[in-house]
Amino acid sequence: MAVTVISPSRYVQGRGAMNDLGMYAAKLGSKALCLISAGGIDRVGERIEKSFAQSEAPVVFEKFNGECSRTEIDRLVKLVKEQGFDVMIGVGGGKIFDTAKAAAYYAGIPVAICPTVASTDAPCSALSVIYTDEGAFAEYLFLPANPNLVLMDTEVIAQSPLRLTVSGMGDAMATYFEARACVNSGAGNFAGGTVGVTSFGIAKLCYDTLVSDGLKAKIALESQALTPAVERIIEANTLLSGLGFESCGIAAAHAIHNGLTQLPECHHMQHGEKVNFGTLTQLVMENVPEEELTEMLDWMIAVGLPVTFAELGVTDTSREHLMPVADAACAPTDTLHNMPFEVDAEMVYNAMIAADTYGRRALSAKR
């Protein structure tokens, strides 16, 4: 396989960047459909309308139904075709991005992604994670191209709930460890190629940025302060993690996340929070040195990420309750098999139990 790196056509990040959304959208089409939540309209709807007032492309808001499912994607494709929209914009969080990307693909139109949060690495990728209407993981939809535009207004993101940016750190931290596993196993990446030094370097830079700036950014965001550390974490959560995971590949952390979606009590948890527990479980499976495991637990706890089942809302830790999680993580089509050793559900179950124990001990030591 050839070394392959993929990325969005244009990435824009900065204070007030959303004020230029209309200008960028006009370069992609003449009639924009903006997928957004009701809360998103309240937060940034007026700002978006003002940005389009200066362009020749009108914008129409369409409220997101709450789940990136085949039902919602089909509804939007029908709307695009019936009303003649020629550019799709997704404004909000990860499931909105994935829905907008998938609907734009099936409708054959360009897509712009404008996050109001930095909670996942979904904005930059040529991938949509599809769920059932009830919220359980269903499938990965691999798209032929990355978004035409990703626009990050850091002023807006700094005003979003702190938990969402912290969750984004959890999603981003998995990037390096899953990339390392894929390099060690020789697994292919999402671009249909192999991992090059550029891609792995991006994944490592993502890790380094999270370690150096994560806690500083969390503290600043407790007061909604937009500092250089916050800017760097927004970039790490979105661009570095997005390019890193897609051009390196993913492994156990995200597969375990997918397994956790089988538990209804986890549905209220953020994507990155579940991924973070998956990262901890992956490190246990890899039997990393105690120093590395301790450093990661300390960082996770310091920034406020969950490291135990209880923090994920799981109170029943019996074998009967958790084995379906392990079985789902080991699905033949999932990414657990990118690990550099043979993995089965029994190994996943035991690693999750041990990860929970390590997490509880680490939390107890901090008290």
Rank of each mutant, 00 (worst) to 15 (best):
I6T: 14
S7L: 13
P8A: 09
R10H: 11
Q13G: 01
D20F: 05
G29E: 11
A32Q: 10
S37L: 06
D42F: 08
E49S: 14
K50P: 05
F52I: 10
A57D: 12
N65S: 14
G66Y: 06
S69F: 02
I73F: 05
R75A: 12
V77M: 08
V77H: 07
K78G: 10
L79N: 11
K81I: 08
G84D: 15
F85R: 07
M88H: 08
I89N: 04
G90E: 04
G93E: 02
G94K: 01
K95D: 01
A100C: 08
Y105S: 10
Y106V: 09
I109L: 08
P110Q: 08
I113Y: 03
T116S: 13
T116K: 00
P123A: 05
C124P: 07
A126H: 08
F137E: 04
P144A: 09
P147D: 08
T154W: 01
M173W: 07
M173N: 03
Y176C: 02
F177R: 03
R180G: 01
A181W: 03
F190K: 09
F190G: 12
G193P: 06
G196E: 10
F200W: 11
I202G: 03
L210W: 03
S212R: 15
D213L: 09
L215K: 14
I219P: 02
L221Y: 01
E231W: 05
I234M: 12
N237R: 05
L240T: 03
S241G: 13
G244F: 05
A251V: 09
H254E: 07
H257G: 06
C266W: 04
H267P: 00
H268F: 10
L280R: 01
T281C: 06
T281S: 11
Q282L: 02
V284A: 03
M285F: 06
N287S: 14
E291P: 05
L293I: 09
T294Q: 15
D298L: 09
D298R: 15
W299N: 10
M300H: 11
G304F: 02
V307C: 06
T308K: 06
R319M: 04
E320T: 07
H321D: 00
P324S: 01
A328G: 00
A331C: 09
L336S: 09
E346G: 15
E346L: 04
Y349A: 00
A351F: 02
M352G: 00
M352S: 01
I353N: 00
A362L: 09
A365N: 13
K366M: 13
